[in-house]
Simulated scan of single mutants.
Amino acid sequence: MIKMQVIGNLGKDCVVNTVNGRNVINFTVAHTEKYKDSQGNNQEKTTWVDCAYWTDRTAVAPYLQKGTQVFVEGAPEVRSFTRADGTAGASLSLRVREVQLLGRKGDNVGGGGSQYEAPSASRQESSAPASVDDVADDLPF
């Protein structure tokens, strides 16, 4: 089994479709790495991951909006294609098993890191949404 985990921001609002009677939530996650090149200059590299979340739990869809930071986990797939100019291309896609909302830009309440965690859309968890107070009650300090 190959598993891929990505933390990044949604590039645009998700789209919910029905294919052969099954619901799929499609969205794109941008993961940006910052590094220094051999000359010591700061560089950024962004990798875009097309995500397909096949689920009946579409209640998470309204929260999957442009700019939202998410954690996604699933099975990676590389898709090959031919561009209009005849050159070969490839894209990275992910068949999502789990989605967790990590926050939005401007959600900083205190120090660093994620300030709230929305309910997980994992298959193992119930579909009942958790409130921010429920999350705070689970903190070990």
Rank of each mutant, 00 (worst) to 15 (best):
M1K: 13
I2A: 14
K3P: 05
M4N: 14
M4A: 14
Q5T: 14
I7V: 15
G8C: 05
G8S: 07
N9S: 12
G11Q: 03
G11S: 05
D13T: 14
C14N: 10
C14H: 11
C14G: 12
V16Y: 03
N17F: 06
N17Y: 06
N17E: 05
N17W: 02
T18E: 14
T18C: 08
T18Y: 07
V19Y: 10
N23G: 06
N23W: 11
V24Q: 12
V24C: 12
I25A: 10
I25P: 15
N26K: 15
F27K: 13
T28S: 12
H31Q: 07
E33G: 02
E33K: 15
Y35S: 07
S38I: 11
S38G: 05
G40H: 11
N42I: 15
N42H: 07
T47P: 14
W48L: 03
V49E: 02
C51I: 14
A52W: 10
T55H: 05
T55W: 08
T58H: 06
A59M: 10
V60F: 07
V60N: 01
A61S: 14
P62N: 05
Y63N: 04
Q65L: 08
K66V: 03
P76A: 03
P76R: 10
V78W: 00
R79Q: 11
F81W: 08
F81H: 01
R83E: 00
A84C: 00
A84V: 01
G86H: 05
G86C: 01
A90V: 14
S91Y: 00
L92A: 01
S93K: 11
L94Y: 02
E98R: 07
V99I: 15
Q100Y: 01
L101S: 02
L102Q: 08
L102D: 00
G103D: 02
G103H: 04
K105V: 02
G106V: 09
N108S: 08
V109D: 00
G111A: 07
G112I: 05
G112Q: 04
S114P: 05
Q115M: 09
Q115H: 15
Y116V: 07
E117W: 09
A118F: 12
A121H: 00
S122E: 00
Q124S: 10
S126W: 13
S126L: 11
A128E: 05
S131K: 10
D133F: 12
D134V: 07
D134P: 06
V135P: 07
L139Q: 07
L139K: 10
F141K: 08
